[in-house]
Computed example of a mutant assay.
Amino acid sequence: MQYLLLIYGNEAEKLKMDPTDRKKLSAEYGAYTQSIVQSGNFKAGDGLQPTTTATTVRVRDGKIMTTDGPFAETREQLAGYYLVEAKDLDAAIGMAARIPGAKDGSIEVRPVMIYDK
């Protein structure tokens, strides 16, 4: 089954990181990504640009409305994701717990819907 591992963290804190810590975190993500690629669990994944680049789209009464920025003000922002293949929820949780961002943020684990053909 496929699971989406959504990485949430405090964007403002990440921007304050000194270059050495940022480089260390990047290396941790690289090692994690390489491990799930090698294990065959990796399907897709990317980091996201800051929330200042986001646009929220809504359609109300047939009219398209856009708003700059994220949908809601929160302490943690969606920073990236991994799409993984896991035998069950416990395996997906195990993968999520190894994501570097879990140490100071949170990882949401969501099963991907399966559509009948």
Rank of each mutant, 00 (worst) to 15 (best):
S39A: 15
G30V: 06
Q77S: 04
D68G: 09
D46R: 08
F71A: 10
Q2H: 12
D18C: 05
G94R: 10
V59K: 09
I99A: 01
G40D: 02
K24P: 00
Y82H: 06
Y115R: 02
K14L: 14
T51E: 02
T74G: 02
K117T: 11
I114Q: 08
P100D: 08
E73F: 01
T66M: 11
F42L: 06
Y32T: 03
I114E: 14
V109G: 12
D116F: 10
K16G: 03
V59Y: 09
R60I: 05
L78N: 01
G45Y: 05
Q2V: 01
A72P: 04
V37T: 08
I64V: 15
Y32D: 05
P100Q: 10
I107E: 13
R60W: 07
V37H: 13
P50L: 04
K23R: 15
T52R: 13
G62L: 07
M1R: 09
R110M: 14
I7G: 02
G80R: 10
V84S: 02
P19S: 07
S26E: 03
R60V: 08
E108T: 04
E76G: 04
V84E: 00
D104C: 08
K87D: 05
F42I: 05
A27H: 12
Y115P: 03
Y82I: 03
T20Y: 00
A31F: 09
A31H: 11
E73W: 01
K24M: 06
K16N: 12
G47D: 10
Q38N: 15
I7V: 13
Y8P: 07
Q49L: 13
K23L: 13
Q2L: 00
A12S: 15
G101C: 06
A91N: 05
T56A: 07
N10F: 02
K23P: 01
A96K: 04
R22C: 06
T55F: 11
R110P: 08
K117P: 06
M1L: 07
V57T: 11
R58W: 02
R22I: 13
G45F: 03
I99Q: 00
G101D: 05
N41K: 14
N41W: 10
A54G: 09
E108W: 11
Y29L: 12
T53H: 06
A86I: 09
K16H: 11
N10D: 15
S106H: 10
G45A: 00
Y3H: 11
T66S: 04
P111A: 13
D68I: 00
G101T: 01
